[in-house]
């Protein structure tokens, strides 16, 4: 047993490397040899985790992935607990359908972070994803519970079809954010292309945003500026083409 399992990329993938089964809660049960033998798919073909990664440590719910993982897909997908840290960029489907635990990516991520599996109506239903970089399209799409934080920019469709939960974007939020949202919150500290089906309610200082941003600064170590913590936010309710109990909170100044 060790404190952390470290997976260091040894052989760079040439196609999509699907890591959907490599989750901290699973690795917490396995010795090093069995971790290396976990099945993955590379360019659509069966392979083993050990074919690509050097494995250090075993039976730990803290997992660190190292290397250029832009072609790695589904990291932390379906994870139920533990902590997954990616030291660098990550591919699409990070944390899809996860139910618990925490993922931190110290780089950019691809599309559908915290979103739903193909054909599924619901995205993540619990846990936290922190992206210290930019996110592709559909971050937090269909999420039912949980938290997605993007310190950089987020692409089109952030929080699309949210059922509940919270997405925070400190940079620019792309078009169609929150489209078809039932409930849930999108906190936009930067510019956001808001759908016309969100209606302005008021400008105020949301107490839960203050609490959340302080949590992100103090407990998750993010560099959150005071102006966002104490600032005013424009509240827009939406999507009024849906249930309309969601909200978009756009930072409006100090």
């Amino acid at each position: 047993m060790s404190d952390v399992v470290v997976l260091s990329l040894r052989t760079a993938p040439v196609g999509a490397l699907e890591l959907a089964g490599v989750t901290p809660d699973r690795l917490a049960q396995l010795p090093q040899r069995e971790i290396a033998a976990l099945p993955v798919r590379h360019a659509g073909r069966a392979a083993a985790l050990g074919d690509f990664f050097t494995v250090k440590g075993e039976r730990a719910a803290r997992v660190r992935l190292e290397g250029d993982l832009r072609l790695a897909e589904g990291m932390g997908a379906g994870m139920m607990g533990g902590e997954l840290v990616v030291e660098g960029h990550a591919g699409r489907d990070v944390g899809v359908a996860m139910t618990g635990g925490a993922i931190e990516v110290r780089g950019d991520v691809g599309d559908n972070t915290g979103g739903a599996r193909p054909g599924a109506a619901r995205g993540m239903v619990g846990g936290e994803i922190v992206i210290r970089g930019n996110a592709g399209e559909d971050a937090g799409a269909g999420m039912r519970r949980g938290l997605v934080v993007v310190t950089g920019n987020a692409g089109r469709g952030t929080g699309r079809g949210m059922i509940a939960g919270t997405a925070v974007v400190f940079g620019q939020t792309g078009p169609d954010a929150g489209r078809w949202t039932k409930r849930g919150s999108i906190v936009a500290c930067g510019p956001v292309a808001r759908p016309a089906t969100f209606r302005y309610a008021c400008t105020y200082r949301p107490p839960h945003v203050r609490l959340l941003l302080l949590y992100l600064r103090e407990r998750r170590g993010l560099d959150v500026a005071d102006r966002w913590i104490t600032g005013r936010y424009d509240r827009y309710s939406g999507d009024l083409a849906e249930l309309g109990k969601g909200e978009m909170l756009q930072w409006a100044g100090e």
Binding site: G146, T166, S185, P206, Y215
Partner: peptide, 13 residues
Amino acid sequence: QGSKVIGGRRYWR
């Protein structure tokens, strides 16, 4: 009303 879970604790708004 609505709720938020922050740091594993639920709050009501």
